[in-house]
């Protein structure tokens, strides 16, 4: 199992080298959302008894952990198609599961960094929620795990960078806006709620928000995220095996 550490360590070194740039890049979108939506909506708008800004921060945590975890797919693609580093892993005596664990953990690590940045930005805007609640971090972890595993699997299936960008546009962007990030899903028509129920981000937003507000959490969301995450993880192992040739 030492192989997973080698894979993770490589991603960690790259993250460390790019961290200043990455931190700036990770801050831009959440900052704009907080300014545009938070200030524009004002403190007069309340949702479920919280200001819109308080409602928005856990949503941004869910969205950002999703997008940053999924972005590991782009890194794998660059390694595969441009630098051919994936071949170094394939020629090494490490199992496919070790490779997937390493890359998935790298995606989760990036997601946690981005969450840290959002929480600091929230602090800057005067928003402090119950971040000491372990269920908050468990939900962040499960959400990152789901999308990091999905990204690793899809990175093995796509044939080019363009395919990867297309996946982000079709899978991640719609989910980012519809998965309960910016507005409560229960205010949508029933038919739309039924569709959005199937999006992992809807469950992640709900779980992260409930934990941050210290309101009763829906444990079924955690179970569902764990099941989806495991399915994507197993799918990723299968895809890595098929990626040879």
């Amino acid at each position: 199992m030492y192989g997973f550490f080698a894979v993770y360590y490589r991603e960690f070194l790259i993250l460390k080298r790019r961290f200043p740039k990455m931190m700036a890049s990770m801050s831009v979108s959440p900052l704009l959302y907080l300014i545009a939506f938070g200030y524009a909506m004002g403190k007069s708008v309340t949702i479920h008894g919280h200001t819109y800004m308080e409602f928005l921060v856990p949503g941004l945590v869910a969205m950002s952990s999703m997008t940053r975890a999924f972005a590991i797919g782009s890194e794998i693609n660059i390694s595969r198609f441009y630098w051919h580093i994936f071949e170094e892993f394939q020629a090494a005596p490490i199992s496919n599961i070790s490779y997937v664990i390493g890359e998935t953990l790298a995606g989760v690590t990036r997601a946690f960094f981005s969450v840290g940045i959002i929480l600091m930005l929230g602090l800057f805007f005067g928003i402090v929620l119950s971040y000491d609640n372990p269920l908050f971090w468990l939900a962040v972890f499960l959400n990152s795990f789901v999308f990091s595993s999905l990204a690793v699997g899809l990175a093995m299936v796509v044939k080019s960078h363009a395919d990867q960008a297309m996946l982000t546009n079709f899978v991640i962007t719609p989910m980012a806006f519809l998965g309960g990030t910016f507005f409560p899903v229960d205010r949508l028509p029933v038919w739309a709620q039924k569709i959005l129920f199937f999006l992992p981000l809807t469950h992640a937003s709900r779980a992260i928000r409930a934990a941050a507000f210290r309101t009763p959490v829906t444990y079924s969301s955690y179970v569902l995220l764990a099941i989806i995450g495991m399915l994507f993880f197993l799918g990723a192992i299968h895809c890595v095996n098929r990626a040879r040739d």
Binding site: R10, L13, I14, R17, R18, W83, H84, I85, E87, E88, A91
Partner: peptide
């Protein structure tokens, strides 16, 4: 040990 035709070193490291 494998030395591939295309150099596959990690340029960032």
């Amino acid at each position: 040990g494998v030395v591939p035709q295309t150099i596959n070193l990690d340029n960032e490291l």
